[in-house]
């Protein structure tokens, strides 16, 4: 094993630890575990960034230099990285550590899948001709920023449902720690907007790339098609909110449907024949 994959498998545990401390913060209602959780995630993010840079350098040492964004393993690692990055930005902006317990676990799951699944090859592979393009980086970054934002919206939707189970007469301690429904709704809306913007950019950069690699800006390849389906679902969500004023529970349900579509766009299409076979 090469050093960067070893470090990255440690990062998996760092995020696991961070998720535990965020949960502790939520269950106990004390600030201290939350502060620890923040520092652990920040530490994890820094270590992961270093590992990614090492991996990038290593690929050059192997004579096949390319950004570490070129196969399923690298995409899962990057997915986790973006989730933690976005989460820490949100935490800093809203000055609350109550969301971590529902968002950091996704980074942990992604890292764990990448590091420990026998189906995911962690070796640095050279770029096949179709991937040798300057559009690789911008396409992957925009797409995964979109995926990560939708994942955060999904975590918020789960919190919304949990909050909905709160008994108004004697709310348990745990429920008290959950942010208010209005805040969850607003944050989830903002995450969806963010995801929608990056998904749009991801689709556009992808079609620019396809125009120079596959002979057409749009080939109805399953991944392309599913990204469009995801886009249509989130477009529907935004319209129902803007025009119909849908809020709260309905938004949360639609956010979960949208996330299912994101997951299928990311993983599901691997089971369908298509051109995106390298992810």
């Amino acid at each position: 094993m090469i050093i960067n994959t070893v470090i990255l498998s440690w990062v998996t545990f760092i995020y696991f630890l961070s998720a535990i401390f965020y949960t502790l913060k939520m269950v106990t209602g004390r600030n201290f575990p939350g502060i620890i959780a923040t520092y652990i995630s920040l530490f994890g993010l820094i270590v992961q960034t270093i590992a990614l840079i090492l991996r990038w350098i290593e690929s050059y040492r192997l004579g096949i230099g390319h950004a570490p964004l070129s196969n399923l393993y690298e995409s899962l690692i990057f997915f986790a990285w973006v989730i933690v990055l976005l989460y820490l930005i949100i935490e800093w902006r809203i000055k609350s550590r109550n969301l971590g317990a529902f968002i950091i676990p996704f980074a942990f799951i992604s890292m764990a899948y990448a590091s420990f699944s026998p189906d995911v090859k962690s070796r640095i592979q050279p770029l096949i001709p179709a991937l040798q393009s300057n559009w690789l980086i911008s396409h992957v970054i925009t797409s995964f920023l979109g995926y990560a934002a939708f994942t955060i919206a999904f975590g918020l939707a789960l919190m919304y449902f949990l909050k909905g189970r709160e008994k108004s007469t004697s709310p348990g301690f745990f429920f008290k720690m959950l942010p208010g429904k209005d805040i969850l709704d607003e944050l989830s809306y903002q995450s969806i907007v963010m995801g929608f913007i990056f998904l749009t950019l991801g689709i556009i950069t992808g079609s620019v790339w396809a125009y120079s690699a596959w002979g057409s800006y749009w080939s109805w390849d399953p991944k392309e098609t599913w990204s469009l389906i995801t886009w249509l679902i989130y477009a529907t969500i935004l319209h129902s909110r803007f025009v119909r004023g849908w809020r709260g529970r309905r938004m949360a349900i639609m956010s979960i449907i949208g996330f299912a579509s994101v997951l299928f766009t990311y993983f599901g299409v691997n089971y369908l024949p298509g051109l995106h076979s390298y992810f």
């Binding site: 109805w220 399953p222 098609t225 599913w226 469009l228 389906i229 249509l232 679902i233 477009a235 529907t236 319209h239 129902s240 025009v243 119909r244 299409v269 369908l272 024949p273």
Partner: peptide, 27 residues
């Protein structure tokens, strides 16, 4: 009407799903 928009967007989404599940063209 927005209802029409939403219905259309969803039908287009479902039709697109069909296209990825049923082998297209040469398949």
């Amino acid at each position: 009407s927005l209802k029409l928009t939403i219905v259309l967007l969803l039908i287009i989404a479902i039709a697109s799903i069909l296209g990825t599940v049923i082998p297209q063209g040469t398949g």
